[in-house]
Each structure stands twice: as C-alpha cells, then as structure tokens.
Design a protein around this nucleic acid. Structure first.
Lengths: 203, 203
DNA sequence: GAAACTCGATACATTATTGTATTGAGTTGC
DNA sequence: GCAACTCAATACAATAATGTATCGAGTTTC
C-alpha cells in the first residue's frame, strides 16, 4: 500500500464511466451518444475510455451484466429477509427508489437497454439470455407464491408472473410520457388488484 | 394532368422515406441512423431527403403525426362499426397484423418512438401531448365500456384503462426479448382475465 | 411551347467521430 | 530505489456525417 494514492483505481474510472454513460444515454439515447461525449461527461478523455473498454458495445454490455447481477442479487436478498409476501412487497416499495446502479435508477435508460438487447440479439444472444434468466427468477417466485397463498380459478400461477412483469414495465414506460395519469405507485396498485382478484376465486 | 408521369410525386418520395427510415431505425435505432443511411435505404441520395425534410427530427415528427392520426382514425372507425364489446375486441385481434403505417407494424420501432418522445419532451412538448390524447381516447372508451357492462368492486373503471394500456405495451416490450414465454396473444389473454375479474364483483 | 417552378442529384466545405500509437506520470515488486 | 508495469492523456490519420449551393431533367401554367 502506498502512503498517498494520487491516482484513482481502475474500478473508480470504470464506475465513473458507467455513471457518465448513463447520463449521456438518457439524454441522447444509446445510438446518439459518442464515445467522446461519454468520456467527457465522466471528466476523462477518449484515451481513458479506450483504456477501459474496447468499444461502446463493450461498455454497454458491462453495464448490463452489472445491472442484471445486482438486480438478481437484490431480489434473492429480499427473498431471504422477508419470508411473507406482504413484507416482501413493502420492502420492494421502499427499495425501488435509492438504487446504486444507474440502470435501476432511470426508467428511460432501462427501456433503452431492453431495446439494445433486442436489437443485439443476433450479434450477442447471451444478453437476452441474461434478461430472460432474471425474468424467470421473478416469474418463478410469483408462481410459487401464488400456488402457496390460495388456489384460484381466475389466473393460473404460471401466467401471473408474466402479467406482473408486463404491468411493471408497461407502467414504467407510460410514466415517461404521461406521468399525470400514471402515478409512481401504479404498479403496486395493480399488484394489489391482482392479489384481490386471485383471492376471490374461493367465493 | 400530364399524359405520362415519369417522376414520382412528392408524397411517394415521403412515403418511401418513411418506410426506409422505419427499416433503418429498427436495425440501428433512431440515434444510430444517419440521414445518408435512410436516404440510401429508400433508394435516394441525401439531396432527396433534405428536399423533403429539414432534419432527422422533422422526419421522425412527421412519422409520429402520421401514425397517431392513423391510429386514432382506426380506433374511431372500429368503434363505429362494432357496437358491442366482443365484436370490437375480435376486430382488434385480426386488425393488429396487417397495418399500413410502419410504426404500427414494428413493436421495436413503436418503443423506440415512445422513448424519442419522452426525450424530446422539453424541445417538443406537443409530441407527448399527441400520445397522451391517443391514450385518453382509449382509456375513455374502456372506462365507458366498463361502466356500462356491469358494476364492479374490484376495479374502478377509470383505472381499468390505464391497466389495459400498460399491459399492451408491457407485453409488446417483453415479447422483444422473451417471445418464448410471451406469445402474441398474451395481451388478449390478459384482457379476457380482466373482463372476468370485473364481472366477478357481483358474486 | 415557353417561362416559371419543382425536386432530386451532385459537388463541396466543414465538422464529428473513430481507433491507434505514443508518451509520461504514477504505482508496484523486488 | 530502480525496473517493470499501469493507465489516462495526447497526437494523429482516416473515415463518417452534416448541411448548403448549384445543376438539370421533368412538370405546370398560361
């Protein structure tokens, strides 16, 4: 260990580039952002960028890996800490706000990334696979929860997961252009409706 | 009127540029597409492009106006021709496939455009307004239908519209990266569930 | 049918963007 | 403490993209 570190570590630089890229992508879109703009937003030159990533694609892929890993980690963690459903959902509500990774923080960027993955499917099928794995984790949780909580005739448990995820991203998307009629809690409100609808089957 | 027209009309050219832009945007994203690439895809040079549009932004805005107008028109038309709900939904199902405007045809482009509008909100607030108007038309229809069909305690009619639209775009989005678990009829299936859930309230 | 007009092509100047090769300050191993 | 190494900056070459000005074939008007 040196006495005083005057140079940031490699990880610091990468992290700064992630944050900067997120800001630039949000403003200009992934396709519209130049490497120069990203590096500058992070307070670096292009040299720093190329020293850390081979290309814009590689940066994006690294950001995605990071995000999916963190997201899966958070979900597993919540699952361990909150055994009953109500607690779990409560924890979800409060957590959603202050996230460390840029992708989880910005709905616009989140959408942008999904489109990137869809478009990159041919070149990079592993990206879509990662997103599908994350998706499957969530749908499985929901399916299990639905099965255990009470039987239903309205919705089959396997289907419920797909529904919930579609609702989440659907509201996220619509909130971008119509926040007035799409309050932040729309998704959780829909979740509540869904739970009630499934409970009702016993009637 | 001349006897034989050897030069295409202005509208033909614009239409070709729309189609070409849709293809290029789908492949490269809006931000990643150059004017050169769009013009070339349409079989023109950049000269033709600039003769018809001031910039890429203007082209996109024209495409959007076109799409929203057509979409609203189609909805109103369907509404007139199919007075009862079941017919209306059936007509929706069959119509969804073969649409003339590029934006309605490509889910990826549809999403891309929403992001464009969200990002352009500050520069061009009228775009988001148009999308919100289209959105309100649909939610109003759903609200009215829900009110007339049978009262409910599970979902309030005003809320049902937002829910339906979120589902539509949510499934559209997820189908891009996970078509396996998101069949094309997912949205209609969810619609059916929703109808049943609302009907149940009487029990 | 000739003058005015339209629209896409071409040519050109300018700026943006990219990727690589090299340099040098900072760091680590021994 | 000095040799090897790391990493961001700088310089450079090449290409990509933009926007404008101009030209000419085709079209309309009278």
């Amino acid at each position: 260990m040196s006495r005083v570190r005057t140079r940031p570590t490699r990880d610091d630089t990468r992290e700064k580039l992630f944050e900067a890229a997120a800001r630039v992508f949000e403003e200009q879109g992934i396709g519209g952002a130049s490497i120069e703009a990203i590096a500058a937003a992070a307070g670096f030159t292009r040299g720093a960028f190329y020293s850390n990533f081979k290309s814009k694609d590689e940066l994006i892929i690294a950001m995605l890996e990071d995000h999916v890993e963190q997201s899966i980690g958070r979900i597993r963690d919540l699952l361990d800490r909150h055994k009953n459903l109500a607690d779990f959902i409560d924890a979800l509500k409060t957590m959603d706000r202050n996230q460390q990774d840029p992708l989880g923080r910005s709905p616009l960027l989140h959408m942008e990334m999904i489109l990137f993955v869809a478009r990159a499917e041919k070149r990079r099928p592993e990206l879509a696979k990662r997103l599908r794995a994350r998706r499957k984790l969530v749908t499985d949780i929901i399916e299990t929860t639905a099965r255990n909580s009470g039987r239903t005739t309205i919705l089959n448990p396997a289907w419920a997961g797909a529904l919930v995820l579609a609702l989440e991203d659907g509201f996220r998307l619509h909130r971008l252009i119509d926040p007035e009629t799409t309050p932040p809690d729309s998704f959780f409100r829909a979740l509540g409706d869904l739970q009630r609808a499934m409970g009702i089957s016993a009637a």
